[in-house]
């Protein structure tokens, strides 16, 4: 029994290791003296990846797709800006406060939305996202209306000014690492197993005594915490936020990123975030061409790579090296079988 547990833990840690290695390598990028354009885009991508880890808990583990996730990021960003403006609260205190605000907003949205399922939930979250943009646009001086809000004040860590691009980049990489580890911890916890049970068969899960509604709202709240933190990082990075940044299109992009990368794997959000941020840059695509490419990618992923791009790559590698393909969600499902 003890050996089984140790084997499970080893198995779990093995699934986290590739992400940590990749993130460590990403943290070394400043050593290659990258351009500031690259660093800036990488910071934006990293901020998205943090929100994507929350979305992967919701979509990948619980099977609920939110099309209003950018609104939760927006709640975090606006919370940070308003706290700084009205109460002089800085970056580090804004982090938990904004995470809490986004979590509360997620719960408020989640309670009515999760009474319906499937496509209806997607529409409800989309509508809530739009509603938030309208509220922010018409919020007068308090929300800065359509012009938005400035956020002033430096980000410091142990006396060091983190607004320097390389330092902010490293800080975002650190936050992405924390998000990845938190996501991994959720996936490999009994809570994660409960969420997956709901994803696979809601009725069966309910018959086993799982409070399906409460856990679904819980997953939405957890995803809100990730989004809130992402929002604070975004607000302090840009120095100015406006409602258009958190409306329907950014939400669709977040959903697209997590679906292309793969929502059930720990590497998925990282891959999706990087791919969608850098593909137009590398291939010099304009927004219309980008949308065509993303659309084609999405169709290809849905039809050919149900576990997302990373799932497909890992499966192909395993097939190449061991001669037999393995279902990619197996890294946590195998442990469940043994338990």
């Amino acid at each position: 029994m003890k050996e089984d547990r140790r084997a499970d833990l080893f198995e779990s840690l093995r699934s986290l290791l590739p992400v940590l290695v990749i993130l460590a390598l990403i943290a070394l990028v400043p050593l290659f003296s990258p351009s500031n354009r690259f660093l800036s885009l990488a910071i934006s991508a990293g901020i998205n990846v943090i929100a994507l880890y929350g979305l992967s808990v919701l979509f990948g583990q619980t099977g609920i797709l939110s099309m209003g996730h950018a609104a939760l990021v927006g709640v975090g960003a606006y919370a940070a800006a308003i706290l700084a403006r009205d109460f002089g609260i800085g970056f580090w205190l804004a982090l938990p406060a904004a995470a809490l605000a986004s979590a509360v907003f997620a719960m408020i949205v989640g309670i009515p939305s999760l009474r319906v399922g499937g496509h209806h939930f997607v529409i409800m979250t989309f509508a809530f996202g739009q509603l938030l943009a309208i509220v922010l646009t018409n919020g007068g001086d308090y929300t800065g209306a359509a012009t938005g809000l400035d956020i002033a004040g430096p980000v410091t860590l142990f006396g060091a000014d983190m607004t320097d691009l390389t330092r902010y980049y490293l800080m975002v990489v650190a936050f992405v690492t924390v998000a990845a580890v938190a996501s991994w911890a959720i996936i490999h916890s009994s809570y994660g197993r409960t969420l997956r049970a709901i994803r696979e068969n809601e009725k069966l899960a309910a018959s086993l005594g799982i409070n399906v509604g409460r856990h679904k709202i819980g997953a939405f709240v957890v995803s809100g915490i990730f989004a809130g933190i992402s929002g604070v990082l975004l607000a302090y990075f840009l120095g100015h936020i406006s409602p258009s940044q958190f409306s329907s299109f950014p939400s669709i992009y977040l959903a697209l990123m997590v679906m292309i990368g793969g929502a059930r794997l720990i590497e998925g959000p990282l891959a999706g975030g990087i791919l969608v941020a850098f593909l137009p840059e590398v291939l010099n695509l304009d927004p219309v061409q980008s949308r065509i490419v993303y659309g084609v990618c999405l169709i290809a992923v849905i039809m050919l790579l149900p576990d997302g791009l990373i799932g497909g790559i890992v499966r192909a590698l395993r097939a190449a090296f061991s001669g037999k393909p393995k279902q990619e969600t197996e890294d946590c499902d195998a442990a469940e079988v043994r338990q």
Partner: peptide, 21 residues
């Protein structure tokens, strides 16, 4: 593990290559 390291190194090299003087 080797494959992961190779992939990571390639990624880092690609990202570094985007740097412009």
């Amino acid at each position: 593990m080797k494959t992961v390291l190779k992939m990571g190194a390639s990624l880092a090299l690609c990202l570094g290559a985007l740097a412009h003087p």
